[in-house]
Structures are given as structure tokens and as C-alpha cells.
Design a protein around this nucleic acid. Structure first.
Lengths: 188, 188, 188, 188
DNA sequence: TATGAATGAGTGTTCATTCAT
DNA sequence: TATGAATGAACACTCATTCAT
């Protein structure tokens, strides 16, 4: 009996994610993904029950990965300002360096049936644990988790998405955003 | 000769926007839109050159509308804190009350070929004029336009999108966000 | 607006029926039918909602046609023996001359989902009216409708189906069957 | 070396027959049969060269079985009327109790390539031997084999197929049919 | 302007079968 | 013998678009 080829599955995932960045979710068909991954369309159905199931599964995987990466950038030794800087910078770097995965997640999260019952915030919980610790120690202000997540992540995403048409220097802009969020969140 | 029927065009737009909220961009076909709008598929091509052109055109219209509405909520008589509150509250209310249009814009904005060469920030310029005025008068802090837009809009969108799974009271959360942004942007 | 081309629909029906005789129900695809009928596969869906709906609709049409033809062979002026002879001979002739339609009906009638809720006997009712008249006049014996239909139709179908491998003369055989059924059904 | 597992082959056959009753020949795939039988699709090809060969082989087996069963119901001690009754009743009982097998045979018998070169009558030969004996002894009338088979089997099949929609009592109907065939075939 | 008919190209998915173990 | 992986070809069906009226 032939055994499962996990490299094949990896190629399928990567093709899907890359093509969705290039052509958009609506224009990425199973046949295109298969051709790009160098497998038969039927092979995709060995690994996934349906296109939607594939999208949903990879969507969840990618969502998790982002936050796992982000968490690895952080350590309890950092002071409050460093923590904010690392989150903002790390999240930005990730979205830019994993542009395809990021775009894929963004598109899936707007798509009914794929993102169903999945909240981005849930992945953020590991980071919340750290933030709570800082809040308990009086280093960060005591805002609600939802709003902390909202101001830490959403503006970065906004900047990452609009970065191509921005005239000014992106590092400078990001630096300013870090300052703003430090001012907002870190108890002086 | 019959004249162009603007009611028909309106119905087409509304059907498209509503169906994209319900089924997603990828699952909304010209035929479905036509059926929902009560016209023939061919009729849609009287008003638009192609599906993509239709998406792009309505996308631009909807994007503009959001900011027109937002601007109407604001007046130069407001003090700084009121200004921030109005922007945040107005934007939130709009996204919730025009859920379909908002979801439509979000989906299109990730879609290459539809959102091509269109930046959300461009629509924001009317509001920037007002903000610049407040900054000149020393009421608001002098952050870059990009970052001001980022912190004012993105967190609201984030909250609006995740509002269904939030345990806590949404008004309370929004109130806190307003306070945070007032603290951040308004010179005390 | 282009109008419906009923000749096209006729060709679709005929292709379907002919191909099902040649290849069997299970091996007759929509694409094959379309190719044979000289239309696009998509065109078939202008006239029918689905393959199953098409089968069911044409099945009903064909079933009805058989009995309409049969009824036309009969007249109240016939005596009892002539009536039996005409039914048997007419039914046999029809199945042989409309072999494709007959085979199509036979295959559909075994297929769950196509023949659902359709009884061959229902089409026979016009002929039953005539038979009842003969029974009332004491010309035919008073057997139940179901058994009269069973002995009049089923053996003919049986012979028609097995006619290729029969060694003996088919007309002679049919003649004998007529005699048997006259003996059975006509009061002497 | 493992030996051929006849239980496995039996399960494959049973699954095929059962599924074809439930879903129809056209909707019964090798994969479904394998899943239902609890084996791998590849295993089916250990026992059969192809799907068509499998259908043809099991079709022949099932056809034969019916007549073997029927023959067992009969004995030379019976008088003419008993013989007719036993054939009719036995055949009916068999079709009802082995509904799946019966439906399977019926569907295959219309399918070119499966039923090719196979006549139902051939299986009937054992019974013909007995019937010939009765004819020689002057108990049954001297009709041709084809017509005897036609009137004995086809009406029963007809009744069995339409039994669900019949309003009247099925035993009563079958009793009448027996009487009719006794009248027709047994020399008084 | 407005339309239902028509379509070639494509959709997601399953097919019967073979491969490698 | 027995299998899950793998597949090219086919499946039923829908797509965005154009045609003929």
C-alpha cells in the first residue's frame, strides 16, 4: 500500500495560498491548484473532503501559525515599551514576509462558510496571557482584551495592506505607530 | 425608445451587494444577481461592461458612500473629544447598519482586479481636511495621516467584524475604545 | 429575444432515447447526449432542470405515448377475439418499431428516482375503459384489472425482449399467444 | 500467503446487489460498493477483472439462483394445477423475498454489455423438462415453450413490480392469476 | 432598452482503474 | 492477498457572456 505523501499535501497548500494571493479567492479553482501543485485534481480529494473543507482547514492552520510566530518574538523579560514594539513590529514583519498566507487568511475570514465559527481573537489568547501578566504588574493599562487586540493588530494590518500606495517611508510610519501605542497602553 | 431604467440598475446593485454578504463573492454569479433583481442576465450587460467592471464600479461607489456618511456626522463646532467619538461611533454604526455594503467592500478590497489601484485612504481625504484643521488649532496631536486613519478606522472594523462572538456588551466596549482614542489623539 | 427551439428539444429527447438503447442508462451522459443532438451541454439545461428531471419527464411522455398508440389501434366495433388480437399485436409492433423508446422506458422504470411514483398501469386506464365495456356486455371474462393487464402486456414484453435468441418464427409464436389469451379472456 | 477470502467476495456481491436496489445501477460505483463491503476498492479487482465483468458474473449467478430455487419448489408428484400454483407462487415469493437480487437482475438485463448473450429462458430449461413431462402425459396443454414461459413468469414479475401501488389484496390477486393460468394451461 | 436562448469554457467532484507497498 | 494513494478522464452542472429578437 502506498503511503500518504505529506510533501504532496504541503505543495497543495502552498499552491492554494499562492494562487489566492495572485488571483483572489473567487478565481482560484481546484484544477488550477492541482496544476500548480503538480498533482491530479482527484489527488486533492485524497487529502481534503471538499474545496470548502480545504479552505477552512488551511485557514485555521495559517491563522494559528501567525500567532505562534508572534508569540515566539515575545519574552517576559521585555519591558512594556519593548513588548508593544515587538508585537507591532513582529506582526507587521510577518504579514509582509508571509504576504500570501496573510492575504489568504484575510480573504477566507470574509468568506461565509469558510470562516464560520472561527474568531481571530481566539488565536490571540497566548499573547493575552502575557499581556495580562503585564497588566497585573501595573506596566500596561487595564483595557479590555478586545480593545487591546483591536488597537494592537488592526492598525498594523491596515498599514500593511495600504503600504504599496503610501508615499512616505514605511519604517518611519511604523515607528510612529509604535510610539502611539506605547503612549496609549504603557503606564508611564 | 425606453430610457435607461435607474430603478433597475439600483435593484441590480442591491441584489449584488446582498447576495455577496449572504453567499460570498466567489459564490455570487451574474445569473443569481439577475434572478434576485428580477431582470435578465443580459440586462446587466446593458448597464455594465462585465462582471468585474460592475464589481469595481459598485465597489468605488460604496467606498465613497461610507465616507460621505461619516463626514456628515461631523461638524467643525465639535471639540476634539466629540470629533473622535463621532468618527468612531459613526463608522461603527455605518458598518453595522450597512452590513451588506460593508461586507461587499471588504471582500472586494482583497480581490485583485476589482480593488486595483484603489486605496481606502483616498476616500478619507475629506475627513483629513477636518482633522488637519484640528491639528493646526492644537486640539489634536500631530500624527501622520496614515497612522491617524489606521487607529481611528481599523480597530472599529475589527470590533464590528468580531462583534457576534464577543461576550461583553458592545456599547461598553466601543465606549472604552473611544476613551482610548481620545487619550491618544486629543491634546489634553 | 430568441425564442425556444422546440426542434432542438426534440433532438435532445431523441438522442437521449437512442443512446440509452445503444449504451444503457448508466453509460449515457449529458455530454454524450448533447454531442449527439448537436447542442452544447449547457443548452440541455435550458430545457430541463437536471438530468434526472429530464429522464423523468421524457419517461412520462414515452409511457403515455405507448398507450395512446395502443388505444388508437382499438375500436368498439371489434369482437372480443379481435380486441385481444389487436392489443397483443399492437403492443408487440409498437415495442419493436419503437425499440429505443421501449428500452428507454424499461430502463427508467427500474431506476429509483426516475420512475418514482409512476405506475405503468395508470397509462392503461383508457384501455381499461374499453375492456370494462366488453366485460359488462359479457364478451370478456370478469378478471381483475391488474391481472388482465398483467397477462395482456407482460408476456408480449417478455417475447419482444427475448425475440433475438428465439429459434422459431416470431409471428407464429405471437399467433399462438393470441390464441392462448383469447381462450383465457374471451367468454366462448 | 493468505488464501482467497470467500467471505470477502460474498460481502462484495451482497453490497453491490443491495446498493443497486437502493440507488440504481447508474449510481452504484466501485468505491461505494467497496466502502459498503468494508474492503478497499483495489480488493474488488482481486476478485473481478472489471466492474462490468463483476456485474456480468453476479448477474449470471443470480439469474441461475432464481430458477434453482424455483425448481426446488416443484416435484413430479404434483398434479397439473399444483404445478402451476407452485411455479407462480414460488416465483412471486422469490422476487419479493429477494427483492434486491431481483431488482439487480432486472436492471442488468436491460444493460448492454452486462446481459449480452444471456437469455432468461435458458435458465428455465430445468423447469421445461418437468413441463414437457406433464405435456407428454396429457396433463398440460401443448403450447410452445416460449409462450409457456412468457405467461407463467412475465405476469408474476409485472405484479411483483407494481405491488406497492396496488389497492387490492395481493394474495387475492395472485390467487386469481393462478386460477387463470390453471385454466389456460391445464387440460381439464 | 430589454430579454430568454444559447454556448464554450470552466466548476467542483467522482469515476474505474492501477500503483507501490 | 490486500490496501490506501494516485490518477486522467469523465461526471453533472454553472459560468460570464453574446446572440437574435
Amino acid at each position: 500500500m502506498r503511503t500518504r505523501d505529506y510533501d504532496k499535501q504541503r505543495r497543495i497548500k502552498e499552491s492554494m495560498v499562492r494562487l489566492i494571493l495572485r488571483d483572489g479567492l473567487a478565481s482560484t479553482s481546484v484544477a488550477k491548484i492541482a496544476r500548480d501543485a503538480g498533482v491530479s485534481p482527484a489527488t486533492i480529494y485524497v487529502y481534503y473532503d471538499s474545496k470548502e473543507a480545504m479552505l477552512a482547514e488551511v485557514f485555521r492552520e495559517c491563522s494559528r501559525e501567525t500567532y505562534v510566530y508572534l508569540q515566539q518574538q515575545l519574552s517576559p523579560e521585555m519591558d512594556g515599551r519593548e513588548l508593544i514594539r515587538s508585537i507591532v513590529q513582529g506582526y507587521y514583519t510577518y504579514t509582509v514576509e508571509h504576504e500570501a498566507m496573510f492575504s489568504f487568511v484575510e480573504q477566507c475570514s470574509r468568506c461565509p462558510g469558510v470562516a464560520q465559527g472561527f474568531a481571530e481573537e481566539d488565536c490571540f489568547c497566548g499573547i493575552f496571557d502575557l499581556i495580562h501578566e503585564y497588566q497585573r504588574r501595573g506596566i500596561l493599562r487595564q483595557y479590555s482584551d478586545e480593545n487591546v487586540a483591536a488597537v494592537l493588530l488592526a492598525p498594523v494590518k491596515f498599514i500593511a495592506m495600504n503600504r504599496s500606495c503610501a508615499g512616505r517611508d514605511i519604517d518611519e510610519q511604523l515607528g510612529e505607530l509604535v510610539q502611539m501605542l506605547q503612549l496609549l497602553l504603557v503606564r508611564q
